[in-house]
Nucleic acid binder design. Structure first.
Length: 404
RNA sequence: GGAGGGGUGGCCGAGCGGUCAAUGGCAGCAGACUGUAAAUCUGCCGGGUUUCACCCUACGUUGGUUCAAAUCCAACCCCCUCCA
């Protein structure tokens, strides 16, 4: 499918589009002039992770194409908890936790979007602003009447729980109503005519467009992105160590860079399109690199993706560290460090650097030849390591011992 | 409320008085081969120590029987199926 609007054409060619409620009409609207679109984010954690990155990039493209992005923080809906994909109710957060999380998340968005008061500047709003003002009876009369229980029961998020006879509280059951109401409110306040989100949000999004049509008789659109999976079928962004966080407090720059560097061959092109701003012809060239040369493309992916989220400088530093550490066998500046007062055993060094969770684990690393000091296998667990030496666990984890 | 079935290591899932830190699979870690990839093969995969060994903690919870329990008994909690 090809679109006449720059915005949709961009999304389409870069692999962002899964479903659109009315592609033709949305394309026409986006061609005619600036539109306002939003994505909702929940703020149950102080940072977003890679799973949110597709939506963030989509907002970035929206803005670059001359439209206005709204970031909706689910301060109000976080108080309820989205039942989608969960067997059990989420833990409820206090107002203070929510506020702190929102402040922290905002800093991530400022890297990707330009905020301000201009016509295409991004704004961030908290749906708690209107949700907590709602009056129960009027809300039921004005909004509740448009929702049929029959239909709500048919939604996957609800059906799944009911089929498994898992408890679904009334509180959570209301989640989809509030999300639909958000859209109505944003449409009224900001003339927002497009809600975007992951494919799991399709039902919620459609509820919103329906509600706007029923109450205000206006057209609004919905767009969802495909679920991004890796070539081996695993869900994107989950590693054994947990989520890949966008916030540097939760994941060092170097580790973030490394995450992208270790992308599977088959995913390089896809990820370059989704997670960098590189032009498509450049990406086409990179993903076509044969054999081992694909590593060049991975390094570009890592640096570009890191630059977006962490800044160009941090990306360059991470890339330089990777270069000296992996390609030259040296030790880059960004490696994790472990400060000691006196020489320590290799076992303690591995634990100190966070490469082993217990002494047993560290000993096993040594026994299997995975522990190295300055590139040489550590002979036994009693070997001492001095400040200034590089300690490695396996081929990918490297750290420096420094003096206090 | 009644009748059955079940709760085991990150997950799935065997075991059903000693030989069980517990088969197998997945995930993970390390080694080999490579390209900081994939696939494959090999080893590891609760914690501690003086590591071909020993100690501690673990099979829903709490007690009990026994020389000995994940395995038997009792009570309790939770889940599932069927009946009311």
């Amino acid at each position: 499918m090809t679109y006449s609007s720059d915005f949709l054409q961009r999304l389409e060619t870069r692999g962002f589009i899964h479903q659109i409620t009315d592609p033709g009409a949305l394309d026409a609207a986006a061609s005619k002039g600036p539109i306002t679109a939003y994505v909702g984010f929940d703020c149950t954690a102080p940072s977003l992770h890679i799973g949110n990155l597709v939506s963030i990039m989509m907002l970035r493209h929206l803005q670059q194409a001359g439209h206005r992005p709204i970031v909706v923080m689910g301060g109000g809906t976080t108080k309820i908890g989205d039942p989608s994909g969960k067997d059990e109710a989420r833990q409820l957060l206090t107002d203070d936790q929510i506020r702190a999380n929102m402040a922290s998340i905002r800093r991530i968005f400022e890297r990707f979007l330009t905020f301000g008061d201009g016509p295409t500047d991004a704004i961030m709003v908290n749906n708690d602003e209107w949700l907590s003002q709602l009056q129960y009876i009027p809300f039921l009369r004005d909004v509740g009447r448009h929702f049929s229980i029959n239909r709500m029961l048919s939604f996957d998020s609800v059906k799944l729980r009911l089929d498994r006879e898992q408890p679904l509280s009334f509180l959570e059951f209301n989640y989809m109503i509030f999300q639909a109401y958000d859209y109505l409110e944003l449409n009224r306040r900001y003339g927002c005519t497009l809600q975007m989100g992951g494919s799991d949000q399709w039902g919620n999004i459609v509820n919103g467009t329906d509600l706007i049509r029923r109450i205000d008789a206006r057209d609004a659109f919905g767009l969802t992105t495909p679920l991004i999976t890796r070539a081996d079928g695993a869900k994107m962004g989950k590693t054994a160590k947990g989520a890949v966080w966008l916030h540097e407090d939760q994941l060092p720059h170097f580790d973030y860079w490394q995450f992208w560097r270790n992308t599977h061959d088959a995913d390089v092109g896809k990820f370059l399109r989704l997670f960098t701003d590189l032009p498509l012809d450049e990406i086409a060239r990179l993903e076509a690199l044969p054999g081992a040369e694909i590593n060049t493309a991975k390094a570009v992916l890592a640096t570009e993706a890191t630059a977006l989220c962490r800044g160009r400088e941090a990306a360059a530093a991470a890339a330089a560290t990777a270069q000296t550490t992996f390609a030259e066998g040296g030790a880059g500046e960004e490696l994790p460090q472990f400060a000691v007062g006196a020489p320590v055993t290799i076992v303690d060094a591995l634990i100190g650097l966070g490469f082993a969770a217990s002494k047993n684990e560290a000993r096993k690393l040594v026994a299997q030849g995975g522990a190295r000091i300055d590139g040489e296998a550590a002979g036994n667990d009693g070997v001492l390591v001095n400040p200034g030496q590089k300690v490695s666990a396996g081929k990918k984890r490297h750290g420096m011992i420094v003096s206090m």
